[in-house]
Design a protein around this nucleic acid. Structure first.
Length: 259
DNA sequence: ATGTCGGCCTCGGGCCGA
């Protein structure tokens, strides 16, 4: 089985690339983040024409997540139980489904903005809701994974220059501790291989030539339980999908499993 | 370079979010 996670930075302008990716890379399951589109505006017909089922969850112009599968799509859950709201509004940042016997969650963790911004406290609360969800879902021992844009770089090596992030979110101890608590539940970081350079960054800001200079971050992650991680045969960041005209600012992570 | 994208409101360009 091949499972992919990809923050596409808006599904509508990215659709040609997503369709091409589905044909070329042929994932069985594709977890999407940052649809930037309400559910009803998802391009269902174009994706379904390639033989996939779609579960999308979008509540407006921001956020939005989805799961695309050609190996079944059942027991869909939209949102995390007990998730916090931001500024009084619900946001579409998590969707779960069972695909080909694997329980999969596609997540788009809040950015946090700055450490003193209310969005940062919201981010930590959201990660705690994710921890509760994972804790409850791990009572079953089948293959399970949370994949997506975590907006946290787990270690200093996961940013191109830690000095640049001295006053920033994505690298603070509370954020990293939240990831550690997820791992403590029995998940492990399925660490992908890079296709180029020595570190598998997954995100490069559009500005200032960050991508050609490889000024990237590893903030898209695959956290799997033992049944999932033990079945992994390969994992890589498809940085080729970040190249050319009209890319997302994130690259997909491709995970192959003996499942 | 405060550097680039994308959505939205609204039809030119500003604002917000990342």
């Amino acid at each position: 089985m091949r499972i992919v996670t990809w923050n596409v930075n808006s599904i509508v302008p990215r659709l040609p690339r997503v369709l091409d990716f589905l044909e070329q890379t042929a994932p069985d399951v594709l977890c999407l983040q940052e649809l930037k589109s309400p559910t009803e505006k998802f391009p269902f017909a174009e994706v379904e024409a390639l033989g996939y089922e779609v579960a999308a969850y979008g509540l407006g112009r921001w956020n939005g997540v989805g799961i695309v599968s050609r190996v079944g799509l059942s027991d869909v859950v939209r949102g995390l139980p007990g998730e916090p709201r931001f500024d009084g509004a619900a946001e579409a940042r998590a969707i779960g489904a069972t695909c080909g016997g694997v329980r999969v969650w596609s997540v788009y963790v809040p950015n946090g903005r700055e450490p003193d911004n209310p969005h940062y406290a919201y981010k930590l609360e959201w990660l705690e809701a994710l921890r509760s969800l994972v804790s409850s879902e791990l009572s079953s021992s089948g293959p399970f994974a949370v994949l997506g844009d975590f907006n946290v770089a787990p270690t200093d090596a996961d940013v191109w220059d830690i000095a640049v992030f001295a006053e920033s979110t994505h690298v603070t101890k509370p954020e990293r501790d939240a990831l550690a608590r997820l791992r403590d539940l029995g998940l492990s970081d399925v660490f992908p291989r890079p296709l180029k350079y020595d570190h598998p960054f997954t995100y490069w800001d559009y500005r200032a030539g960050n991508f050609p200079n490889n000024k990237g971050m590893r903030i898209d992650l695959v956290y799997g339980n033992a049944a999932f991680s033990g079945a992994v045969t390969d994992s890589y960041v498809d940085r080729n999908a970040r190249k050319g005209k009209g890319p997302s600012d994130h690259a997909p992570i491709v995970v192959d499993l003996d499942l």
